[in-house]
Nucleic acid binder design. Structure first.
Lengths: 259, 259
DNA sequence: AAGAGAAATAATATCGACAAAAATGCCGAT
DNA sequence: ATCGGCATTTTTGTCGATATTATTTCTCTT
């Protein structure tokens, strides 16, 4: 019945296999921490700080930061270091707008070229997502990494069939950025929303071949999220762009290399 | 009359100012050489090779290669080195298809949000492009770097007003890739074509606010180029993916640091 | 006291040496 | 003669130290 339809991880995301090179390891961990909001937007990433944090040498750190800055997760300022890329309400608006434009195309193309293989992958992704709770805690909201991963996979499954690796990679980048915004806005997102229903609606339209409806649902999905995040941003004072001449973080034992 | 309308260089492209850091210098030179086809697709980029070529140390090379691989100009294979990203007819088709999809949006949005400032910049870019010969040699075709730079600037001017830095950066990346394909196919492109006219047609439609026509012209422009390059690829045997265990290149004086 | 300039300090960028891994070549067994 | 495993060589990846550049602090002048 079940052929191995989908090879779980897309390019960079989920890789469970320990990466053979230190640079990639640091890259992935830094990436996770930035996306998850552990490292705050605008925060300075001194090499020494990163080095101590992940217990590696100079070069891997530098390389990881380089890669991240190409991904747009880190901002590099020539000769004065690296910073976690800042975010703002305007950034989010621009991002969502772009996502709607571009993913609309990607989804339409996916639908236009649809095969049973793609449809099955899509249904599967939706199913897996629906089997996992949105929040780790049923009372208050607590991010569930498993859900987040499957959610990402779901949105990629939607557009995977678009026939352009370029477009796909671009969308993945934007998905990650959006994820970051969501993580930082947290709290209000969870309770009052029927995300599962929204997802189902998109899939249904897609499988019926109704591209217009699918795109409409997808865009509505994004706009709704954006609205919530933007509201959340207004109420919270923007804790950003602190110069953060951080002596504090270095107070750790620091330099107990051996461990 | 002439306010300083346009700040010539976009993000990465033209930077004439000598970059303050060695890594960026190597990055830019490598980039030029890859785009210009001096370094062939599939060719291995050993650190030692690059190091000797540009007379720098280990770290800047590695960093430059890292950045380039994020840009898609270099392929990194974990623990077995870097290669100039290969190209193929399929790649080109996919690329052009994507460009048509995405730049159509970008152009439409640019037009929808048009201002006199944008229009003036566009006219200016077109004018500058038209003042420079397509080929350095009037008999046979010889790439004119000045024309190429202005051509790039022109296409970016078209979409600059789209209102999304994300989209813009994405398009720039694709423009570079397309440039690379063009450079490698060379020769037949020049004589038999009225590129100036095509460019003018796009601008005219854009300024009249006729988005449909502008997009139509732009897509035709790309398709025509693609056709020529693809024909050129067929006739020439694909000289790609040579393992190239190149001892040869290293025969240079090598290691005369002082100069 | 305020501001410009110079020393001191801290961070980034780079280097050359080294360790780890892959590719190659060699040898013997079947 | 061919295949598979061991030793060698080449190449990638990492480290710690150093040179270079930015930033801060201090001093001296107006």
């Amino acid at each position: 019945m079940n052929e191995p339809i989908i090879d779980s991880a897309t390019t960079k995301a989920a890789s469970t296999e320990s990466p053979s090179t230190l640079a990639t390891a640091v890259y992935e961990r830094l990436r996770r921490d930035i996306l998850g909001g552990v490292l705050r937007p605008g925060q300075k990433l001194q090499v020494e700080f990163v080095r101590d944090r992940y217990r590696v040498g100079n070069s891997p750190v530098r390389e990881a930061l380089s890669r991240l800055s190409s991904d747009g997760l880190v901002e590099r300022r020539e000769q004065r270091g690296f910073y976690v890329a800042p975010i703002s309400a305007d950034d989010l608006r621009e991002l969502i707008k772009t996502r709607c434009w571009v993913e609309a195309i990607a989804l339409r193309e996916s639908i236009a070229a649809r095969t049973s293989e793609w449809e099955e992958g899509l249904v599967l992704a939706l199913h897996r997502l629906s089997r996992v709770p949105r929040s780790l805690n049923s009372e208050s909201y607590a991010t569930n990494p498993e859900w987040e991963r499957l959610h990402r996979a779901f949105h990629i499954a939607l557009i995977r069939n678009c026939g352009s690796r370029w477009l796909l990679a671009f969308c993945e980048g934007m998905i990650d950025q959006a994820y970051r915004h969501r993580q930082l806005a947290v709290a209000k997102i969870y309770p009052e929303r029927n995300e599962a229903g929204e997802h189902r609606a998109i899939v249904q339209a897609a499988i019926e071949g109704d591209a217009d409806a699918a795109v409409r649902e997808l865009e509505a999905h994004y706009q709704r999220t954006a609205k919530i995040i933007l509201e959340c941003m207004d109420s919270a004072a923007p804790p950003q762009t602190l110069p953060r001449r951080g002596r504090a973080a270095r107070k750790q034992p620091a330099r107990l290399r051996g461990a």
